[in-house]
Design a protein around this nucleic acid. Structure first.
Lengths: 263, 263
DNA sequence: AGAAGGACCAGTGGTCCGTA
DNA sequence: AGAAGGACCAGTGGTCCGTA
């Protein structure tokens, strides 16, 4: 349902090649390809990712110069189809900006729908790694491990890497656990013109608040959610939950432990 | 119920000190001490483990020489209470021998009830590590990890170590999954005078047979059992299950896939 | 300045092989 | 010979910090 919308608005920049390689690599054990892939394959738009024409010049600090064709990021150009034949320099992904739900990131930027989509892609890669592992009788991971990131690279999804994915896990957690709250936060931070770092920081608090309502067990909260359960709980989120729980406990103890009474 | 029996017959050699240290280390987070400990503490017998008087002589190859008091293993001496003050040399545990259920290992040997009890002890150590971790808001292991082995050492259970525990996991698995079969195998191998290595090898087959009956998913079988789920599936057991499944599949395919039909 | 990610590091799972 | 376990090693989770 939202897939089509998201696809139209901001996901068209995703490469198709990795997906096709995934399907080969997954072999007979490969499970169903997710809705996203079906949508993308049907869409027929072409873009490349993580590849660009060799360009020897040093980074001149020009910004938002759109008349180049070597656009990397997810969301804008309809077609720069040529592809990259040899001598490609490794390029970084465009940085994220705070976007509203459904909003296309303009310029050399990627939006947050795209960020969250990367988490879904990792889940698909994990499923494929699991299927391959099961087929071969090997032990197979229940979480997104190094092995999964290696697999993502191997099948061409070089735009996925561990530091990035770990960095934003708690943001994705909010998106999974309370999409309304997540959307509201995105709109508020976009409105205020905050950068991604500020938005990312702000995502901790509502997740901690959710944990508070559910007995502070952030691991249980992650594990209970089908899409979230495959991600390790970030250290900082765990620490914040623990710290909040401790001070909440201290607070309630001065009321004589009667923290469930209404005064 | 069987605890008392086992204790009387072969578990009295377990040190009490580690248990007491465990309880301290577990702190306020420490859960209930298991039945074993209660039994042991009530029993009042004393023995030391992993400690002995300094003895400089090289290992003369004397065997089964019982008139020494530096007995280490689990099962025989009622009391060699003196303890070891300083200059203790690190001693190995006595080797295991194949014993029947409830049988005391004689001489400088340990029996299989004692072996299986070590797995239960590890479970208790894991529970304590988990409680400590939860209390501190750290991530806490669901399996017996290096951290648990380190904890066991720290609280004095130096007779527990990773290579040993990993070595016999599939034997413990059989004991958990089909105690009758496990007991029968022990009796048979004892009768034949087989050594521990032969018994250990023989434990693979019945576990694989159990897996065969349950769709070959050895991970699921481990995870479904409360005492077994905390142990990693041994690589060799996993490989055996996979190999058997493959040949079973090959077999059934020549019958046209009608492997559920009765001919 | 804000951000992406290569690459490092402490501690893991796994088990070999020098030891007794 | 049979067996216990110290210690090693490849690959992990975690994230810093040199990079653009």
């Amino acid at each position: 349902t939202t897939n089509t919308l998201l696809d139209a608005l901001s996901q068209e920049g995703l490469s198709e090649e990795p997906v096709q390689q995934e399907k080969e690599a997954a072999g007979s054990g490969g499970g169903g390809v997710g809705t996203w892939e079906a949508v993308k394959l049907a869409g027929g738009k072409k873009q490349q990712r993580g590849k660009k024409k060799a360009r020897a010049r040093m980074a001149s600090l020009e910004d938002d110069d759109d008349d180049e064709t070597d656009q990397l990021g997810g969301a804008e150009d309809d077609d720069n189809g040529g592809g990259c034949d040899g001598g490609c320099e490794r390029q970084r992904e465009h940085p994220f900006i705070v976007t509203e739900p459904g909003e296309v990131a303009r310029g050399k930027k990627n939006g947050l729908d795209y960020l969250f989509h990367l988490y879904e892609q990792c889940r698909e890669f994990l499923v494929q790694v699991q299927n391959i592992g099961k087929e071969k009788g090997e032990k197979c991971p229940t979480k997104v491990t190094n092995q999964v990131f290696r697999y993502a690279k191997k099948v061409g999804a070089s735009y996925i890497n561990k530091p990035k994915m770990r960095h934003y896990v708690h943001c994705y957690a909010l998106h999974c656990l309370d999409e309304e709250a997540s959307n509201a936060l995105r709109r508020a931070f976009k409105e205020r013109g905050e950068n991604v770092g500020a938005w990312r920081q702000a995502c901790y608090k509502p997740v901690v608040a959710i944990a508070a309502r559910q007995g502070w067990d952030i691991d249980a909260i992650f594990n209970a959610h089908p899409r979230l359960s495959i991600w390790y709980v970030p250290t900082k989120l765990r620490q914040l939950c623990h710290a909040e729980r401790s001070s909440a406990a201290a607070c309630s103890s001065v009321t004589g432990g009667a923290d469930h009474l209404p005064f």
